[in-house]
């Protein structure tokens, strides 16, 4: 891109941000989330593409159908904002995306002792998956991870735990308010 084009694009973005955007006071800037991936505030992204084993797509579809969104293992992890599984290229590849708090690689050992079956049931459908207990698993994930080009988080400074805690506080406060406003008849 020429210097002139660059200036032009910057100017357009500044203009669009000014006329159409707003500032919520949060710091949305991105940094590296480790060896790969981006982080904004407390929330990081992990995006990976890998080949599936024959029949892997069928298995994954079945697993997701049975779970119907209720991935209790994901809830147990406690740091997952969301995760997404997309099948690509006629069900031969998987695109895996997740937004999570903090670091994932520090927790690989914990996954291996606490939720090994869940991890292997899902990722065992991926070609070459060494198994969650295998020492090479961190490298396997890194090898398939692609750092996102763009990463935006609406509320970057709150973890899943923070959101759950705040939700409980608000529920409690609302109950107090409702009780106080109750009209005795």
């Amino acid at each position: 891109m020429s210097v002139l084009d660059n200036i032009k694009l910057t100017a357009e973005l500044v203009k669009a941000n000014f006329s159409e955007g707003i500032d919520d006071g949060y710091d949305h800037s991105t940094t590296s989330a480790g060896k790969k991936g981006l982080r904004s505030g407390r929330v990081s992204e992990l995006t990976a593409i890998a080949n599936l084993k024959p029949g892997g797509a069928e298995n994954l579809k079945k697993i997701m159908e049975i779970a119907n969104g209720n991935l209790k293992g994901a809830t147990k992890v406690g740091t997952l904002h969301d995760l997404r599984i997309v099948l690509l290229d006629n069900d031969t590849k998987i695109l895996f995306c997740t937004a999570y708090d903090g670091d994932w690689d520090a927790y690989i050992d914990d996954f291996a002792t606490k939720i090994p079956q869940l991890m292997d049931i899902i990722f065992g459908n991926v070609e070459g998956w060494p198994g969650i207990k295998d020492p090479s698993v961190k490298q396997f994930i890194l090898d398939h991870q692609i750092t996102a080009t763009g990463w935006y988080v609406g509320v970057p400074h709150l973890t899943v735990n923070d959101v759950r805690r705040n939700d409980k506080i608000i529920t409690g406060l609302n109950k107090v308010i409702d009780d106080a406003n109750k009209i005795e008849k």
Binding site: K76, V77, G78, T79, Y107, D109, D110, F111, T113, K114, I115, N161
Partner: peptide, 10 residues
């Protein structure tokens, strides 16, 4: 009580 999946023995 744990808030994040962690194995304290590790």
């Amino acid at each position: 009580k744990t808030f994040v999946l962690e194995d304290e023995r590790l």
